[in-house]
């Protein structure tokens, strides 16, 4: 980090360098770059491939020393174990997946309902101390979860929200609202306010103008924002593990983490559960790839 600062600042004396002859450059350099890129891509992707491989390996091969990369028996047993309990019937893991769908879905819907109108209002009207309000909203999202969870835990214990899905939904909504507002404000800013002015000249009220003309134009943005909120809630772990304990409330992240609690760990099952858990996220992330920069910076950076 510090190194790059120095480089950025000391651009002055570079003119002394004579431009080196570029006869060698060109192709040799390009090959080198491609090779480097390939190596980096393999390193970055290997763990993911290894996870997928482990999830379809027989237990014997999972613990093989040295590790087996290609010649292993393929089995779907681990995936079956994710969904079906050993005695038949639904496994606790599959119940936790359903809980995750419910909690992430409802909290995302709530955050959208609360966040989109707020984003529109912040974009269109001159609200008092607008900048401060927006900064305050974003900074609530930056609070360390371990710190926030202490008073939330006490608060929930007081009102009986500990170990309930409603409790999780509320806290997830609260951390998705700042994101939704920042992300959506960017989308609203892109829709010219003149559309609404024109509609109001036609006799529509401001609210009708928003509802009938701006909102339909915002739908793609709302969809992208909701997908990110869904991913954030789906992946969330800290609140889930401290605020829930029973199997019928617990979401998937703490349930998967719970698989390594015992004396022996069934890594094939862990891998299969992780694959099932991660797959929807990757699909959704691919759908919103155009908005990734804005999404992962909580709507702060837009390019």
């Amino acid at each position: 980090m510090a190194l790059s600062v120095d480089e950025a600042v000391s651009t002055g004396p570079a003119r002394d360098h004579a431009p080196p002859s570029r006869r060698f450059g060109g192709r040799g350099r390009a090959v080198l770059e491609v090779a480097l890129l390939t190596v980096l891509a393999v390193v970055m992707l290997f763990p993911v491939l290894w996870m997928i491989e482990t999830s379809i390996k027989e237990n014997r091969d999972v613990y093989a020393i040295p590790a087996k990369f290609f010649d292993f028996k393929v089995t779907m047993e681990h995936f079956k174990d994710v969904f079906v309990a050993s005695g038949g019937g639904r496994s606790t893991l599959s119940a936790s997946f359903l809980n995750s769908v419910l909690v992430a879905g409802v909290s995302t819907a709530l955050a959208t309902v609360l966040g989109v109108p707020a984003a529109w209002a912040y974009s269109r009207f001159s609200v008092k101390a607008k900048k401060d309000q927006l900064f305050f909203i974003l900074s609530t999202r930056f609070m360390p979860p371990v710190v926030v969870v202490i008073p939330i835990f006490l608060m929930y214990r007081q009102v009986g929200l500990i170990d309930t899905k409603l409790g999780l939904i509320l806290i997830y909504t609260a951390f998705n609202v700042p994101f939704t507002i920042w992300m959506m404000k960017g989308f609203v800013d892109e829709v010219p306010a003149e559309y609404e002015d024109a509609a109001m000249l036609d006799g529509y009220t401001r609210l009708q103008a928003f509802w009938r003309f701006t909102l339909p134009l915002l739908l793609p943005g709302i969809a992208a924002t909701a997908v990110f909120a869904l991913i954030f809630s789906w992946n969330e772990f800290v609140f889930a593990i401290f605020l829930t304990s029973s199997d019928d409330v617990r979401t998937a992240p703490p349930a998967i983490a719970g698989l390594i609690g015992g004396t022996t760990v069934d890594w094939g099952l862990v891998a299969a559960a992780s694959v099932v858990f991660a797959l929807p996220v990757l699909v959704f992330a691919y759908l919103v790839r155009k908005h990734l920069v804005a999404g992962v910076t909580l709507g702060a950076v837009r390019r």
């Binding site: 970055m44 763990p47 613990y63 992946n235 998967i256 991660a278």
Partner: peptide, 27 residues
């Protein structure tokens, strides 16, 4: 770009568990 982005989208739980397995001293 899409391929490189995969690790970032995974839950820290999945990442943590899986690296724990890969970094295991024995197997």
């Amino acid at each position: 770009t899409t391929l490189f982005l995969v690790p970032m989208m995974l839950s820290p739980v999945v990442v943590g568990l899986f690296w724990r397995f890969m970094l295991d001293a024995q197997f």
